[in-house]
Simulated scan of single mutants.
Amino acid sequence: MLSYQHIYHAGNLADVHKHSLLAWMLDYLTRKDKPLSYIETHAGRAIYDLSAEEALKTGEAAQGIARAKAWFSPDHPYMRSLAQTTETHGETSYPGSPLIAVQTLREMDTITLAELHPTEHLKLELALPTATCRKVDGFAMAHSMLPPTPRRGLMLIDPSFEIKDDYQTIPTHIKKYDRAWNVGIIVLWYPILTSGAHHNMLKALEINHPDGLRSEVHFPPARPGHGMIGSGLFVIRPPFGLASEATTLKTHFDTLK
């Protein structure tokens, strides 16, 4: 249940998709001089060393951020986060979504992160001492704290999907989150798999949230037999301009085919 560690996959093409759009959304939200809440249900360790044995073993970062940097201008929020991370933590460091949030948000904003894996939670606390880091189930944490204070804000749901029931239970969780927090931006990341395991989940989400934005990109498998062939985000109450940003990003992914 708690075997997943993102270090093996940090900086892969799914991260490029997820993190670049997250950085864009947070940058957009912080343009307004009003406080906001950021919540993350499956945070990971926040900072990853792409020269670590685990990262080199899969080679996913070499196929991911190493080649995708050219897609973005230096002033893109994602590139600013990457630059700040390497300047602070070294050239081979890569920011997870919690670090991107900490780098982008302001003192008036609140950051609440959940991570149940003991080792990952410890690393998260050490990396981000200014954030609230809870060693709890992220789905349960979200139910307990919605709506947050401030009410304006964004929640990222980024599970590993190593628990296969997630595909069935996530639409129910999100339906309840949406009712409890009817002004919040709710973002779900999901893998696009050769097995098609995500299809029924997406059907349920689109029925429950017909105005949600579905952003999907496809890419070659990281290695022969690898089941993930793409990355998806489902966004409830997407910020203005996100659809255009996602479409532009997709054109870059389309060149990988």
Rank of each mutant, 00 (worst) to 15 (best):
Y38H: 06
E60V: 11
W71D: 09
L205D: 08
A61V: 03
I170M: 08
M141N: 04
S231P: 06
E162L: 09
I65A: 08
M201G: 03
T58N: 03
P224T: 09
F161E: 06
L36F: 00
L116F: 00
T88N: 13
T247R: 13
L242D: 01
H226V: 07
H117P: 05
Q84K: 15
G59D: 09
N208Q: 15
K175L: 15
T149Q: 12
E107Y: 11
N200F: 09
A140W: 07
M145R: 04
S160A: 13
H209W: 05
H173R: 12
L22P: 03
T172I: 12
N182C: 09
W24V: 01
L2E: 01
A180R: 15
R80M: 11
C133Q: 00
P221T: 05
A142Q: 04
G138C: 05
I47P: 00
H252Y: 11
L146M: 08
D178W: 13
M155I: 14
L154Y: 08
F240S: 10
Q5P: 05
H89E: 10
G64P: 07
A127S: 11
S20E: 04
A131I: 08
K257R: 12
G232S: 09
P224D: 14
T30I: 13
L50I: 06
M228R: 13
D109K: 03
S3E: 06
T41L: 03
S215W: 12
K18S: 03
R45W: 00
L36R: 09
K69M: 15
P148S: 11
A62T: 09
L126Y: 08
